[in-house]
Deep mutational scan, measured.
Amino acid sequence: MDLSALRVEEVQNVINAMQKILECPICLELIKEPVSTKCDHIFCKFCMLKLLNQKKGPSQCPLCKNDITKRSLQESTRFSQLVEELLKIICAFQLDTGLEYANSYNFAKKENNSPEHLKDEVSIIQSMGYRNRAKRLLQSEPENPSLQETSLSVQLSNLGTVRTLRTKQRIQPQKTSVYIELGSDSSEDTVNKATYCSVGDQELLQITPQGTRDEISLDSAKKAACEFSETDVTNTEHHQPSNNDLNTTEKRAAERHPEKYQGSSVSNLHVEPCGTNTHASSLQHENSSLLLTKDRMNVEKAEFCNKSKQPGLARSQHNRWAGSKETCNDRRTPSTEKKVDLNADPLCERKEWNKQKLPCSENPRDTEDVPWITLNSSIQKVNEWFSRSDELLGSDDSHDGESESNAKVADVLDVLNEVDEYSGSSEKIDLLASDPHEALICKSERVHSKSVESNIEDKIFGKTYRKKASLPNLSHVTENLIIGAFVTEPQIIQERPLTNKLKRKRRPTSGL
């Protein structure tokens, strides 16, 4: 017993010596996670971090007073192994002897410093981030199933929210409404489509400006004509009531908005009720001829604005009016007729031209339509002016008669200019590109209106002035400009410049 007691005391002394060697000089306990400095002193990692955080910048070693920084600290694995072995020896000594260790306080702390507990403390002390800490805590505590279930439920809930957000973003663009038309193969669909197009076009005519009305009406008319041609002859009974509906809707729209509806009346003529396609083609032919005449008058307007600064050229074209007008009339009417003589009366030419125009518009179905009313009214106005011209010709002399006839021709041009508003800008460009020769010939008609105004002003003063002067240069210039014009009389060319000069002198006297 005595020997055993001596041996136990010796073992205890050895353990105490080893414990003092492996103590931390700051906390005076076994080193936890030993860290060595540049001066080869060993301290606990937790104690050194606490010391360095007390001051900004480098701190001093507690043993040798040298500078220490966080970067200079290094882990010493050898001392950590020695500490672990010492703890194992102490545990074995207690089991063999059955005696508690003399320094129970220190031993209890040593026992608490088992490797499992050290790992837990290291995970908390090290600044490795929240995710690494959570992982280490889960690994160190596998015995708690409640914690695992809560963490898994949190992760699953987070994943569910992310997935639901993604699915919502994908589903939202798919919620856009999609309209699908289910059509049938019955023959009544074509008639319904035609009526739908006509009503939609009328609404567009009321909303859209004048520049786009003609294009819309032309497209709708083409669509309706194609649909009529596709149907068989057996379905004509269905077409006639639908066309009557079209007429009623167009008349109502014309009564409500007459000014807006006139812009599309000329282009919509071939959508009118037709028994066969031949009647629609004839109407299209007549409309094309009318559009040609209207576009020519538009060309004359532009030329008149350009040549208004040259009064000499405008005056020299006075007698070329009849010849150029004959050529335009021959090209406007498709019928083959002989040219009228140069010395014939211009009023007779106008009456013949009106007689040619009237039969074209005397179809029984055309008179029933609303768009032809505008053309009939313009023709009636022309006839009224010609009836007035006959009365004026009986009273005035030959020279005054010529000037009045020219004035009436200008009035006719004004009437025809009203129809110019109905034609589109695209048709003007096509006419100029296809028929430049006709445009040059028809330019002379509009330029002549300037000389007509001068004659009217001469009649106000009650006299006409003449001068025997020749202007050969002007006649040559005008002959080169206009290709299809005829030779003019030299006496009238000489008379016109004198009248304008005298007018300039006598205007201030009349004002006084």
Rank of each mutant, 00 (worst) to 15 (best):
E100A: 05
G183V: 05
M128W: 08
R78A: 15
A253V: 14
C39V: 00
Y101C: 01
L165W: 02
D120T: 09
G160Y: 03
E29R: 12
S80W: 02
T37E: 01
N113E: 15
I21V: 11
V83A: 13
R78K: 09
F107N: 11
P25V: 01
F79A: 05
E143K: 05
G160R: 11
E29D: 15
R7K: 12
V191G: 09
L147A: 12
Q60W: 14
D40Q: 15
R166Q: 05
V154P: 10
R131A: 08
E188Y: 03
S104V: 09
R166E: 09
P145F: 02
E143F: 07
F43A: 11
E116D: 03
A134G: 09
V178P: 05
K168S: 06
V154L: 12
Y179N: 14
K135Q: 13
S76Y: 00
D120I: 15
A92E: 01
L147G: 09
R7W: 03
E143N: 14
T164K: 13
K45E: 02
I15W: 06
R7S: 02
V162N: 08
K110N: 10
S140V: 09
Y105H: 04
K175H: 04
K45N: 11
G183K: 14
C64T: 00
H117A: 05
G160N: 13
L156E: 00
Q155C: 09
R166I: 08
S114R: 11
Q139F: 03
G183D: 15
L138T: 03
N132T: 05
I26L: 13
T190V: 08
E29G: 10
F79M: 08
D185P: 13
T190C: 14
K32S: 12
M128H: 13
E116T: 05
S123Y: 03
Q174Y: 01
Q126T: 03
A102L: 06
L159A: 12
E121S: 10
F79W: 14
K20D: 12
R78Q: 12
S153Q: 11
H41A: 02
Q139I: 09
S186F: 07
S104L: 04
R163Q: 04
L52C: 06
E9T: 00
K168Q: 12
G183I: 08
Y130E: 10
R133G: 08
D185A: 07
K175P: 08
E75Q: 02
E149W: 03
T167N: 05
S104I: 10
T37D: 04
E121C: 14
L118Q: 04
E10T: 13
L52H: 01
S177Y: 03
R133D: 02
D2P: 04
I31E: 01
E121R: 07
Q210A: 07
Q172L: 04
V122T: 09
D189C: 09
F93R: 00
T167V: 11
R133N: 13
L28M: 15
D40T: 03
V8W: 13
S80M: 10
L3K: 01
E143G: 05
G183Y: 10
E9V: 14
N106R: 09
E29T: 06
G98F: 15
K65G: 14
G129F: 00
E188D: 04
C27E: 00
S123D: 04
Q60P: 04
E100T: 06
Y101V: 10
S59E: 13
F46R: 07
D2Q: 11
P145A: 05
E181F: 13
F107D: 03
L95C: 07
S146P: 06
G57T: 02
L159T: 05
G98T: 04
T167H: 08
L6G: 11
I15L: 01
P115M: 04
L118C: 05
Q172S: 04
E149M: 03
S4E: 12
L182G: 05
E141L: 06
L156M: 00
I90N: 12
V35R: 02
D67L: 12
V154R: 05
G57R: 12
Q174D: 01
V122I: 15
N112G: 04
A92H: 00
R166P: 10
E188L: 09
V122R: 04
V154M: 04
K20L: 15
T164G: 10
N113K: 11
I26D: 02
Q94A: 13
T97C: 00
M128P: 10
Q81S: 02
Y105Q: 01
S127H: 05
E143L: 10
K50G: 14
K55M: 07
E111S: 07
I21K: 07
L118G: 08
S151C: 07
